[in-house]
Design a binder for these strands. Sequence first.
DNA 1: TGCCAGGCCCTCTTTAGGGCCTT
Length: 205
Amino acid sequence: MGNHSVIVLDFETSGLSPSLGDRVIEVGAVRLEGGRIVERFQGLMNPGFRVSSFIEGYTGISNAMLAEAPPAAEVMRRFAGFIGETPLVAHNASFDRRFLDAELERLRLARSQEMACSMLVARRVYPDAPGHSLEALVRHKRLPTDGVHHRALADAEMTGHLWLRMIADLQAEYRLNAVPFALLQRLSKVSKAAAPAWLRQAATP
DNA sequence: TGCCAGGCCCTCTTTAGGGCCTT
C-alpha cells in the first residue's frame, strides 16, 4: 500500500437514488499499484428488502442470493476498512459517491479521501470515442474483460484497466514522467474544451 | 395522491431543454 495506491470501486444497487431509499446490494473493488491490480474486494449484501425484477435481470443478482448474503452494514463496515484513506475511482463517480456516502452515514462513518471519475476523465482523454459508457470504452480500447457486465467486481476490474490505460496513453501522448491521481482528478474538473491546452501546460517542464 | 436522481455537456444557451451515464 504505497503512496501511489488507488482503489477502483463499483456498486450494484437496488435503483438509482439513495435519497429515494435505494441501497447497495453488491460491492466490487480493485486496488491498483505499480500499473496493475494487486488486490480485490467483492461482497454481496442483503439490503433488507426485495429488489425489483428489473434489478434481478439487469445484474443477475436474485432475491434468493441476497437473502443468503450478510447484512449490508456488515459488508460495508468491512469495505470501509478495505478502502481506508486510499484515493477512490469509479465510472460515473457521482453515482457511486452518493451510495458510498449514504451507506457510510448509516454506519456513522464518513469518507475522508478524494474520489475521481473515470467517465469524466475518459471524455477528455478520448473525446472522439463512440461512447463513454464503461462497455463502450472497454470495446473501443479493447481492454481486458471476461465478458461479464453489471456485476460489481467485473465492472471494477474493467474500470481499473481503463484507468491504467488512460494513464499510459497520457504518459505517451504528453511525454509525462508520471500521471498521479491528483492530475487526473484536476483534469476531470477542467472544461472539456480547455482540456487539451491544460494537458499541454501540465506536460511543460 | 402522485410525483420524486443528479451531474455533466452541448446547443437553436444563461429567462432552457435534452442526451449521456450510473442501477
